[in-house]
Design a protein around this nucleic acid. Structure first.
Length: 587
DNA sequence: GCCGTTTTCGGCCCGACTGTTTTCAGTCG
């Protein structure tokens, strides 16, 4: 049975209630209850409609009796009487005022009640005509800030790809080290958790002269605007629209500050509640006994976790998705690392749309310490890439064999990134697949098919027994293209059953699967590959991004195909091919 | 509104910065 709403609809509904209650002046704990539940549902790995039908809504942390009833009503009817009554108390545009940084619920309410402002254009007009400076609690600066933020809002930049944030952060920290006395420096926030996109940069520094560091930070070359500036922290706007926040702490607080500013917010809140139950309090300066004020931890991050009775939790897991419970039991997974990766299984050459000869790509892979690399050039349907036909595959087979004789013990696997055609059939004949070592498949065309059609297409494609891996299964391109409409749960289930691996693609704008879906795949029993989809030698260095996504999916070494040493991988691929031949009646 | 090896009632994460105000509310992360 289909319910009337999806998880994201429920999340939006609860957040709106929270916002409206806050504007109304309702007590904070009630407001936070709605927001906490919204967060939990946003991170949910199951369909909330199914949870409801199974009578399991109360299992969601933060959902009690009252919220269960409201969510049920919303799922059944697509509406919620309680929310509609709340909405009726305020004009529909009022909540858009909260999008302006510096405007919270109190000021939004004052603006509405005194000046009848209920939209951003009305806000701008009031600010321009100098009406806001006379309101209680506001003044000329608030008015000027509103105008400034409205301008910024008009050209608001969305979230940025992780790779861009990492390079910006590394540059900033290097510049800061050169221009001020910095004892330790690191980045925190979503950058350190390696989320696939980041909203801003969180930088952390230890210094005995914090004022000088903050000052130097605001004067770095790429800073275009200083948003706030104090002795312990400063926020700036960088060229290109990225915001960077710097925090300066004393050395004895380094670990606590690193923990605090790495987040996530939900993880931190959970951790603090845990501390409180011991009679301790946790802040960015350390872990303290509430009664005596004694410092229990703070200099070292791992020690902080251990003092709380937890295994140290890798930053990639800190999303309050069960990692704290697992760490309490000592049951955190041993996450896959870059060192575990034995080869790259998705690499292009100048035979199709890569920029370098096959031999160059192989040498670059070998230089990174890999035992193997799969060359996976495109196939004939992808005309723009001059994709290979069956005859060219045979030519490539010959070249690969020659190179392997020279490069041993390094091994090039002859592979393919074969197009899945719009009806789910594959681009090359089985005879061509039979001469290959590794077959991976991708959707590159008709990407806007309806959900049911795309799902059937992928299911049909992975049913070919020669197929080892489904590449970039969601097809999204950050900031450019949404994911395919597809029932990925069904595709993952089928892939798990057939032993088909799902790729974690490390291209910065792909990051596909991301951590969320990687974890889903592992839970379903599917195996992952982590590959770079390199089109030039330097792109092989994207591998850490893919490893990060897999780690965010709780992947261990054993969940990832290309952690296998060469001989074991060859055994695995050989067995698959034998089974494929058997299925075709060739044995 | 949620929740419980301190509690079924009485708690609920914590501090910096800004601006307006003369001791602190509002906002943010």
């Amino acid at each position: 049975m289909e319910t009337a709403a999806r998880n994201s609809d429920v999340v939006r509904m609860l957040e709106e209630i929270g916002d409206l209650l806050e504007v109304k002046g309702e007590q904070n704990f009630r407001v936070n209850a709605y927001r906490k539940a919204a967060r939990a549902i946003a991170d949910l790995r199951e369909d909330i409609g199914e949870l409801y039908l199974a009578g399991r809504l109360r299992e969601i942390p933060g959902v009690g009796e009252a919220l269960e009833q409201k969510i049920a009503e919303f799922l059944e009817t697509g509406r919620l009487g309680y929310l509609e009554r709340l909405q009726a108390e305020f004009p529909p545009g009022l909540l858009t005022l909260l999008e302006v940084p510096g405007l919270g619920p109190r000021r939004a309410r004052v603006l509405y009640e005194t000046l009848k402002i209920e939209s951003l254009p009305a806000l701008e007009q009031a600010a321009r005509s100098g009406q806001i400076r006379d309101l209680p609690g506001m003044g000329e600066k608030v008015e000027a800030n509103i105008l400034r933020e409205l301008e910024r809002l008009k050209q608001r930049s969305t979230r940025h790809p992780l790779e861009f944030g990492l390079s910006q952060a590394r540059d900033l920290l290097a510049q800061l080290r050169r221009s001020a006395p910095v004892a330790q420096a690191a980045f925190a926030g979503s950058l350190r958790r390696m989320r696939d996109t980041i909203g801003d940069l969180d930088l952390l520094v230890v210094s005995s002269e914090p004022e000088r560091v903050a000052e130097a930070f605001t004067r770095l070359p790429r800073v275009v605007d200083v948003l706030s500036h104090g002795p312990q922290r400063a926020s700036v706007l960088l060229r290109g629209g990225l915001q960077a926040d710097l925090r300066i702490v004393p050395a004895e607080s380094w670990g606590a500050a690193l923990q605090y500013f790495t987040g996530s917010k939900a993880h931190n809140v959970h951790l603090r509640e845990l501390a409180l139950r011991h009679g301790w309090t946790l802040n960015e300066y350390g872990l303290f006994d509430v009664k005596t004020g004694e410092r229990l931890a703070g200099e070292d991050e791992d020690e902080l976790y251990r003092r709380l009775g937890l295994q140290p939790i890798p930053p990639e897991l800190r999303e309050d998705q069960g990692e704290i419970e697992a760490a309490l039991r000592g049951a955190l997974p041993a996450l896959v690392t870059l060192d575990d990766i034995r080869g790259d299984l998705h690499v292009h050459s100048d035979w199709t749309d890569g920029s370098a000869p096959l031999a160059t790509m192989a040498a670059a892979a070998a230089a990174r310490g890999y035992q193997y690399m799969a060359i996976t050039d495109h196939t004939k349907s992808l005309g723009v890439a001059r994709g290979l036909d069956e005859a060219r595959v045979l030519e490539q087979r010959a070249l690969v064999d020659r190179l392997n004789a020279e490069l041993a013990p390094f091994r090039i696997l002859l592979g393919t990134e074969m197009d899945i055609k719009r009806d789910g059939t594959l681009d090359l004949a089985n005879e061509a697949l039979d001469v290959m070592d590794y077959v991976s498949i991708s959707v590159h065309s008709a990407m806007n098919q309806p959900r049911e059609q795309m799902t059937e297409r992928m299911l049909r494609a992975i049913s070919n027994p020669y197929v080892t891996t489904l590449n970039h299964p969601r097809g999204r391109l950050l900031r450019r293209r949404e994911a395919y409409e597809v029932d990925l749960e069904r595709v993952i289930e089928a892939a798990a059953q057939r032993g088909v691996a799902l790729e974690v693609n490390a291209q910065p704008e792909r990051m596909d699967l991301d951590g969320f879906w990687a974890r889903r795949a592992i839970q379903a029993g599917a195996r992952l590959t982590i590959s770079t989809d390199s089109h030039a030698p330097g792109q092989l260095d994207f591998m850490p991004l893919g490893v990060a996504s897999a780690r965010r999916g709780w992947a261990t070494r054993r969940d990832v195909l290309n952690t296998l040493p060469l001989d074991e991988l060859l055994d695995f691929l050989g067995a698959r091919k034998a089974a494929a031949r058997h299925a075709r009646g060739l044995t």
